[in-house]
């Protein structure tokens, strides 16, 4: 198992978008798309597969670029210390 997704798997995520990291005690808020993206990444999905799930689950138009957005989200997770 990829150690990064193990790190994500330990996060407690509630339906309100509240995230608790038991390792560091940090707390976070994620938006609706972020909740789904986080769940996908926890399950070990690739950013591309995660972006596809977002497109399926949310109403988007042709101007959106979920792959770029998920890549940015992964960078945000890194900024937050949730990915090495």
């Amino acid at each position: 198992m990829d150690p990064e997704s193990t790190r994500l798997r330990d996060l407690a995520l509630s339906d309100t978008g509240f995230v608790f990291d038991p390792l560091t005690g940090h707390t976070f808020t994620v938006n609706l798309t972020g909740q789904l993206a986080l769940r996908c990444l926890k399950d070990g999905l690739s950013p591309e597969a995660t972006a596809r799930r977002l497109t399926e689950e949310f109403e988007s138009d042709k101007n959106t670029d979920p792959v770029r957005d998920v890549q940015d989200f992964v960078l945000q997770l890194r900024d937050c210390g949730l990915l090495e």
Partner: peptide
């Protein structure tokens, strides 16, 4: 009814 897409975002509580 699907929710509208917005870029995923995570914010750490400071």
């Amino acid at each position: 009814m699907k929710a509208k897409y917005e870029p995923p975002l995570i914010v750490r509580h400071s």
